[in-house]
Design a protein around this nucleic acid. Structure first.
Lengths: 182, 182
DNA sequence: AGATACATGTAAATGGTTACATGATTCC
DNA sequence: GGAATCATGTAACCATTTACATGTATCT
């Protein structure tokens, strides 16, 4: 897949310009598929030339004009086809895991300091996502009503974000407790 | 970083040929930094020409000869320098997360089937890593003795693997329960 | 005039995946 | 002779990162 289908999902929710998309993406799907604006513009261009997107030049007053991208029927077909193909287990690449494993071959205090910083980061993120979930979805049980499937999906992906941060906070805490005891 | 430093950690533990390394890596550090044999051979060649590794041709009887790679002092320095540099939060890329978020734009039943397959996979992995931890580290408390830091690190990274699989099993289960109720 | 936000890109380099390739040796 | 395991790669492609580039409009 790569970025293409992630952008199709975002643009299916809401047609956008490159910059709008970059921003919205960073706060939603981009949490599970990070992308820079450079990369997003490139993929938008490619998808347009493939006929998956159509562009509308929007003239603005008080700011530069922009191009708004929307998913075409061909783009919707491509997205649906991709959603129907099975996916294997996601690869997971973690630089800090390699450092934890290799700490004996360098300055352990430096690795511990990095872990402390990361734990602070992830704790902040966890708080942030927990608050966001409570604000955006105060009554998750109600999302099971007919017609609210897409909201339910958004909620469940946010739950994944919360769970992922819980994983990090839990693991890094366990690491620090084990090593600070020495 | 990339693969380079992950291989330096693995070769610091034990000098190896490309094939040995590929296999050992897949069952340890490669869990947090996957790599194919093609990629590993390429990086080994690069690191050798940079002076981070030295090669010994080992003549074998009954099987083809092999090249055994070991970390040089320059390689050890490079590893130590990398361990001392701070690392930001690891990027996380998940194809299934994008599919969960986009399920409304395709065949939801197909996405649910994929999730069920993944849940089975991750459940197996969780069992596997839990059993491995129990077998390799029957008494984790004893790893706090002096001189066992590297074993403690290995244990704690394995704990990360267990926790990551728990994350997946927990999240995918929550997803299925939320959607199967409909 | 300078800082900031909006808006869209290009180019080069790095890293990783996929497909293909080759040869030795052992076991059946 | 054919399959399996050991052993080491090359080449082409694709995706991502990093550095650089340009111009508009608003606000102070």
């Amino acid at each position: 897949m790569a970025l293409d289908h992630a952008l199709l999902v975002a643009l299916s929710e809401q047609p956008s310009s490159g910059l709008d998309l970059t921003r919205r993406f960073a706060r939603s799907i981009g949490y599970f598929w990070p992308a820079s604006h450079q990369q997003i513009y490139k993929v938008l261009g490619r998808m347009e030339s493939e006929g998956w997107l159509e562009v509308t030049e929007v003239v603005q007053t008080g700011r530069p004009d922009k191009k708004v991208y929307a998913v075409t029927p061909a783009g919707a077909d491509a997205l649906a086809a991709w959603l129907a193909t099975p996916t294997g287990v996601d690869a997971f690449r973690s630089e800090i895991a390699v450092k934890l494993r290799g700490a004996s071959y360098g300055d352990r205090a430096a690795v511990l300091a990095t872990v402390r910083d990361l734990l602070a980061d992830h704790t902040l993120r966890l708080d942030h996502y927990t608050a966001l979930a409570k604000r955006q979805f105060p009554d998750p049980g109600a999302l099971h009503e007919a017609g609210r499937e897409h909201e339910l999906d958004q909620y469940l992906v946010l739950r994944g974000g919360v769970r992922l941060e819980e994983f990090w906070v839990g693991w890094l805490t366990e690491y620090l407790e084990a090593h600070d005891r020495d």
